[in-house]
Simulated scan of single mutants.
Amino acid sequence: MWRAIASNALTLIIVILVVVSGLLAWGRQQFTAPGPLADAACVRVERGSSLSAVSRTLEGQGVITDARIFRIGADYSDKAAGLKFGSYLVPPGASMVQVLDIVTAGGQSTCGREVNFRIGVTRTDVILRELDPTTSRYVEVVAFDPFAEAVPQDYVDAASDSDLRYRVTLAEGVTSWQVVESLKRADFLEGEIAENPPEGSLAPDSYDSSRGMERAALIAQMQQRQDRILADLWASRQDGLPYANPGEALIMASIVEKETGMPEERGQVASVFVNRLRQGMKLQTDPTVIYGVTQGEGVLGRGLRQSELRRETPWNTYVIDGLPPTPIANPGRLSIEATLNPDETPYIFFVADGTGGHAFAVTLSEHNENVARWRQIEAQRGEDGVTGVQGD
């Protein structure tokens, strides 16, 4: 009888082991198999959330098929305590093991809402946008000018979200004064900026930020990035350029930046100024005159007057020889690169051509013909003022 009992017990144990093994294999297959998501989804892990709460949320959103298997897999992987606060984009068909990796990897959130504080030459914009998981593209929620408009309620409501990300973007050609004045309006930043940074020392680019970041620390990042860009491009510059040091190249790059917004023209514009310096000609470029009038504090907003073209300022290149004493804006990488590796051209003159670009010329007579055509376009548009390098 004991032999029969032992045999039955052994059989029962074997059956249990087979069942357990089957369940483990099934659970492992469920944990690693493609998940139910047909479209990407944004998953939020609240600060201090438990694995149990997160797993139920994931199951409720249709991201995973079984919260219990997810928890067991997390325990087995030693990741149960590794949840990271944030919002994360989960791709279609992600398995439970992939979802677990996403919500425990940490780092910057990959979906949710973002504020882009954009500092432009003519205006500053605060843009609140949200990632659409189905298209992986950001959709604008609200945008406003912090200098001219009341703060929208949508923005106020979003500011309470501890997972809200912040970005500060500088456009090419902004002045240091514009940057500082705009950053004063960035309500998510803190601290004072002791003084305006030197003109040209800030790299136009996009910078990750955060609520409570010091304004001075952000300015320091901009300066460090510009220093690296200038040093790298100076090291690979053309031979024989008429710049005594990187500072002079930065001055020229700021002029190139303000003279054209067309990337394909920068090398030609730089070549004109290089040719003029080599021939001992005055640069005679309007943006330097404008800087002498405004000192970089805002936009002139009108055409230059003849009296201003004749006025003696350190930046008026119709009056002074060579380069002005400082940059006239913060140039971007492409303008610095064009300045240090300009096109090889015979051009000495250029003027606006009515298309957003410029007409270039070798001789003064050719240039005068281009100017006459531009004057006709101006008359048709009811505008006034010539843009570009003028003749002696």
Rank of each mutant, 00 (worst) to 15 (best):
M1I: 04
M1N: 10
A4C: 07
I5A: 13
L10G: 14
T11R: 15
V15M: 14
V19P: 03
V20I: 15
L24N: 12
G27I: 05
P34T: 02
P36V: 00
P36Q: 04
R44S: 08
V45N: 02
E46P: 00
E46A: 10
G48D: 10
G48C: 01
S52G: 00
V54R: 00
T57K: 07
E59Y: 00
G60I: 01
G62K: 01
V63C: 01
I64F: 02
I69N: 01
D75W: 14
D75V: 10
D78E: 13
L83M: 01
F85G: 00
G86D: 03
L89E: 00
G93P: 06
D101G: 06
D101K: 13
A105V: 02
S109Y: 00
V115M: 08
F117Y: 11
R123M: 10
R123W: 03
V126R: 03
L128E: 02
E130I: 01
R137G: 06
R137V: 11
F147A: 15
A148N: 15
A150M: 14
D161H: 09
D163K: 11
L164C: 06
V168D: 14
A171S: 15
G173P: 09
V174G: 11
W177P: 08
Q178V: 14
V179S: 00
V179T: 09
F188K: 05
E190V: 14
I193Y: 10
A194N: 13
E195T: 15
S201Q: 02
S210D: 05
G212V: 08
A217G: 07
I219K: 04
I219R: 02
M222Y: 07
Q223C: 01
Q224L: 11
R225S: 05
R228I: 01
L230F: 04
A231T: 03
D232V: 08
R237F: 12
P242Q: 12
Y243C: 12
P246H: 07
P246N: 06
L250D: 09
S254I: 13
T260D: 09
G261Y: 09
M262S: 12
E264V: 14
N275E: 11
R276N: 12
L277C: 11
R278F: 10
R278H: 14
K282I: 07
K282T: 06
T288Q: 08
T288R: 09
V289D: 14
V289L: 15
Y291C: 13
G292A: 14
Q295R: 15
E297W: 11
L300F: 15
G301W: 15
R302W: 12
G303K: 13
T313R: 14
P314K: 11
W315V: 10
Y318F: 14
Y318W: 07
V319H: 13
I320T: 12
I320L: 12
P327Q: 07
I328N: 03
N330G: 07
P331F: 01
P331W: 03
G332L: 06
G332R: 04
S335E: 03
T339W: 10
N341I: 13
T345V: 09
P346I: 01
Y347F: 15
D353A: 10
G356F: 05
A359G: 10
F360V: 04
T363E: 03
T363P: 06
V371T: 09
A372M: 07
R375I: 13
Q376C: 00
Q376Y: 04
R381E: 03
E383C: 00
V389I: 05
V389E: 03
Q390Y: 04
D392F: 07
